[in-house]
Each structure stands twice: as structure tokens, then as C-alpha cells.
């Protein structure tokens, strides 16, 4: 049984049928990339999985439980973290407060402290700036904070929406290094990216989303050599 099973998911976005019966699986320990052009429905898919957006039909099974009708905070409690598009850190709060909000659902104080120590170890810049108001961080630092905040919940799976968007090439490298690192730590990752090349490089498997439909699926390495993927997403 897969950790996350999406079956025949249909989502409306306003009057538009944004997601048309998609099905895919994410197994424990995998990095799965969801690639596609702007407006293909990637973000909508993630929002529907975490309950921010209501589905019209279909099911989302997370660790054997149908979560499609659950509110977001219940889903987060089950061990799913979501790094949203545009980071959406709490700009007016301190870096430290942002991180503690990431652990909002946790009751184990000691575990939270350990997670905080690990986040600071992984992102030393965040520790240096823990008292700073998050809105004053640079774009790269804000992305680190968004990822650190997600890790604070000690999640079983992290959904990441365009983590490399708007970052310099050096920072893009850094972001993907961290995703590899997260995977090595045993956390499953569902990654949505426009940077298909980078995403396919680190993913185990990938799905290609085109105007609300999954048009291609398979092993990431194989997809990298697929002619249509090369043409449409890798610019070759």
C-alpha cells in the first residue's frame, strides 16, 4: 500500500474543471516529482491533498485513511507538511515564532526541541537570525524558513510547491541539496516544480501534468530521456 494514494481526483477551480480524474501514488521514502507547465494544475493538486481546496470527486488516501473530507489541521496532525507556493511564511513574526508554529500540533516538548536543534543545524542562518522578523529575510532565507518550518512538525511526508521559484542558481542548488537531505532522513517528498530538469534529477519517479490530466508517468531517469519530455520541459 502506498503512503499517499490519489484516485480519480477531480477538482474545480471556480467554473474551471482544473483537475480531471487524476490518479497517482507516493510510496514511503520516495521523492516524487509532479512536473508541468504553468496552469497545469500542480498547485491545485497539492492544495486539494492538504485540504485547503475541496475536491469535487475522487479520493485521497493517506496512510490508509481517506482524508478528502478532513480539514487541513487534521491532515497536518496526521503527519503531512506542506511548503506552499510563494513560501507564505508569517512575515510579521520572528523566525523563531515561525518555526514554533511549524510544530503547532505537537505535544512532545522534548521532541520539538530536538527538531528545532536539527533545523538550526541544517539551516545555520535561521539560528543566527532567530529573533529577526521573518519579512526582513532574503528570498533564499525565507525559503529555508518555509522548509524548516515544515520540518518542525516532524512530518512523514512533505509536499513542496515550487521551492526553487525566484531563487538564484546557487540557492536553487542549495534547495535541491536540502531535498536530497530530507529524503536521506527518511521523509517522503512530493515535489512540484517548474524546473523539471532539477526535479527529475533528484526524483525517484515522476508524473507529468498537462491541463489537469496526467499524460506521462514513470521512472524519473527514463522520463529524462523521453523525447516529448525533453522537448516540452527540458528545453532540449
Amino acid at each position: 500500500m502506498a503512503m499517499l494514494e490519489i484516485r480519480d481526483l477531480e477538482v474545480n477551480y471556480g467554473a474551471i474543471n482544473a483537475i480531471k480524474k487524476i490518479s497517482f501514488d507516493v510510496n514511503e521514502g520516495e521523492v516524487i516529482a509532479l512536473i508541468g507547465a504553468n496552469g497545469a494544475g500542480k498547485t491545485t493538486t497539492l492544495h486539494t491533498i492538504t485540504g485547503l481546496h475541496k475536491a469535487r470527486a475522487g479520493s485521497v488516501m493517506f496512510m490508509g485513511k481517506d482524508i478528502i473530507k478532513l480539514p487541513p489541521h487534521k491532515i497536518v496532525q496526521m503527519g503531512m507538511a506542506h511548503v506552499p507556493e510563494g513560501r507564505r511564511i508569517f512575515q510579521q513574526l520572528s523566525v523563531y515564532k515561525n518555526l514554533t508554529l511549524g510544530a503547532f500540533t505537537r505535544k512532545d516538548k522534548k521532541g520539538v526541541e530536538e527538531s528545532l536543534a536539527r533545523v538550526y543545524e541544517r539551516f545555520p542562518r535561521l539560528e543566527e537570525r532567530k529573533r529577526q522578523i521573518a519579512g526582513t529575510l532574503s528570498g533564499g532565507e525565507q525559503q529555508m524558513l518555509a522548509m524548516g518550518r515544515a520540518l518542525m512538525s516532524d512530518p512523514k511526508i512533505i509536499l513542496m510547491d515550487e521551492p526553487s521559484m525566484g531563487l538564484s542558481p546557487l540557492l536553487v542548488e542549495e534547495v535541491f541539496r536540502i531535498i536530497r537531505d530530507i529524503k536521506a532522513g527518511g521523509t517522503t517528498v512530493l515535489l512540484v516544480e517548474q524546473n523539471a530538469k532539477k526535479a527529475l534529477e533528484i526524483a525517484d519517479r515522476a508524473y507529468v501534468l498537462e491541463t489537469g490530466r496526467i499524460t506521462l508517468r514513470g521512472n524519473a531517469k527514463e522520463l529524462m530521456n523521453d523525447d516529448s519530455v525533453k522537448k516540452a520541459y527540458l528545453g532540449e
Partner: peptide, 24 residues
């Protein structure tokens, strides 16, 4: 306090607060 932090989070970004596990 935690509820205080939740209030600040909801005030700033309701969606992001929900993703932290805060019940709006």
C-alpha cells in the same frame, strides 16, 4: 501562548496557518 501564536498566524495568513495545523 500557543493559542496566541495561532491568532497571530490566522491574522496574517489563514491558509498558511491551517497548514501549520491551526484550526481556523
Amino acid at each position: 501562548t500557543k493559542p496566541g501564536a495561532a491568532m497571530q498566524a490566522v491574522a496574517e495568513d489563514r491558509g498558511a496557518a491551517q497548514l501549520m495545523g491551526v484550526s481556523v
